[in-house]
Design a protein around this nucleic acid. Structure first.
Lengths: 147, 147
DNA sequence: CCAAACTGGTTTCATTTGTAACCATCGAAA
DNA sequence: TTTCGATGGTTACAAATGAAACCAGTTTGG
């Protein structure tokens, strides 16, 4: 392998990014086409749907989003009346977020679609390949965590 | 597994995206910190460094970028005098792009860093895990291609 | 008790991006 | 040859993003 040349097509960071981008783009149709949500909005909805109540900071940690993204996503979901904020009793900087009935309804509507999407994706792989991708992703995740 | 709830942390599209994002962010320091390049600019440089001469369309195909990204990246690299355009003899819409000496120098400087980055990343994994990630990514790539 | 450092969250501003419209030019078909 | 649809590439505009400044409230250390 020529050390002067980098073969982009086989360069792992590039392949990973391109793959994730393609998958994410495809998946985004579920929340974008149906409800016009952005990715941060979807993640916020999803996080609150899953956990019930969270603060903005917690949301950011759970869904790997910068706090400005969280802030804007929360504002938009609030505007839609899909979530409400309740001030924290002890710390007046903090607000607890949770979905309204409408927000929860939207979440519940999309969850099966999301799961179906993932299933369909994995269904294109052999059992062996499924093991590989899950294992490979996990190992890279943990490798990145400790550093 | 509760069918009403989606566990974001174990949802493959999310994990894939987060992983690629983290890796890409880390990697971007190589071209951003040293030369202030954006990702599309880096990919353009990289594509031309690897292949020698390409048209904008070919660049877009090779590096999975939308043509507006290519167009802007090419314009910027041209402004830096890192690449030059030569009109095609037969088709006057087409231009062939190639790196100048300065562009090539920058490319040659970054290639070893890029390779070292990839090596360092893979070095954190066991041989088994390395096989998994490569195999898993490949299988998903081909799964997405045929559709 | 008070200043200084810190934290949760928002806003501002510049940059990046995506979509669509656009301008050539080309190729095929009438 | 003229017309019309496709193609290579750029541009305009709106929306999404990131960095840094910011505000309010909280904790810590002197």
């Amino acid at each position: 392998m020529d050390p002067e040349i980098l073969e982009l097509e086989s360069f792992l960071p590039y392949r990973l990014y391109r793959l994730a981008d393609a998958v994410s783009r495809e998946f985004s149709r579920i929340y974008k086409d149906s409800h016009g949500l952005t990715r941060p909005e979807w993640r916020t909805l999803s996080g609150l749907g899953q956990r019930g109540t969270m603060t903005a900071t917690e949301l950011g940690e759970q869904s790997a989003m910068h706090k400005t993204k969280v802030s804007r996503a929360v504002a938009e979901l609030e505007r839609r009346r899909w979530l409400i904020r309740t001030p924290d009793d002890n710390d007046r900087r903090v607000e607890h977020l949770r979905l309204t009935k409408a927000g929860l309804a939207a979440y519940r509507e999309m969850v099966p679609l999301a799961k179906a999407f993932e299933q369909a994706l994995l269904a294109k792989l052999s059992a062996d390949e499924r093991t590989s991708i899950v294992k490979g992703v996990l190992s890279l995740e943990t490798a990145l965590d400790r550093r």
